[in-house]
Nucleic acid binder design. Structure first.
Lengths: 135, 135
DNA sequence: TCTACGGTCTATAGCTGCTATAGGGTCAAG
DNA sequence: CTTGACCCTATAGCAGCTATAGACCGTAGA
């Protein structure tokens, strides 16, 4: 139909998304139901490509799907204040920073545990297991 | 029966685990099926307490359940070399370190994105959305 | 023209690690 | 003897996909 019509596989390839995932996004209403070809194949245009790219980028940034949805809703309403978008991004940043701290503590702990390994011993004198076990 | 017999709620309290989670662990074979009281209540002793504490500690350290299972199996076979345990811990550490790097890059990106916010504007001139959108 | 092969279709079940709900039974205190 | 806190089983749900089965479509080679 349109000159830039894509089948689902093309869209998948162009966005690095799996075909089943695209259908999943459609099912949960994150992507609109596309037109169908004569043979009942989904047919996508530029808008779907942009929207899916945006979604995937958000996912890469770690936004959960409902926040992606929220960002898409916000983006579609040009009158809404930009601050709402910033708030979402800032909250996400805070979350990520918290997670980094947690993981750093965890890494420290794992290093401590690993350091108790006595090379060639057997489980019977393995101090790692003791180290993992709580006091 | 035994002097240290605990009901599931006691065990939950002692380990900071939810009752349903304990039953779940039992169902998936991570905890052995306990004895039952006259009224068909689960009855736990010291061994279950230790085992569950170990499981929870592993979970806190971020080990997925199948690795926890593996560690428990290893721990029960005193002849096995300690190195196997160390390998699991080391792999987990590498994973955590990788994750930290990823999240640091992510935080950087989110900071960049957030920095493009033009204070009181509206979505129509929101540069955050542009920043999220891929080139 | 036939046929083989790759892509697509729907529908359903599975994954991890729990959590929630319904609809009951048990037990000790008051 | 009733109330309330606990316990029981069984089932369904959550995120965010992924996998499978069984069928259809479209095109390129023989």
């Amino acid at each position: 139909m349109h000159r830039d019509a894509m089948k689902i596989g093309d869209l998948a390839w162009a966005t690095g998304t799996k075909v089943v995932t695209i259908r999943y996004y459609e099912r949960i209403g994150l992507l609109p139901t596309p037109e169908r070809s004569a043979g009942n194949y989904r047919s996508y245009g530029r808008a779907a490509l942009d929207r899916l790219r945006f979604i995937r980028r958000c996912r890469d940034l770690g936004f959960p799907l409902d926040q992606v949805r929220e960002l898409l809703d916000l983006a579609s309403d040009v009158e809404r204040p930009c601050g709402e978008v910033d708030a979402i991004a800032a909250a996400r940043l805070a979350e990520v920073e918290r997670k980094i701290i947690d993981l750093q503590a965890l890494a420290q702990e794992l290093r401590r545990i690993s350091a108790t390994c006595n090379g060639g011993g057997t489980i019977s004198n393995c101090r790692i297991l003791e180290a993992i076990a709580p006091d």
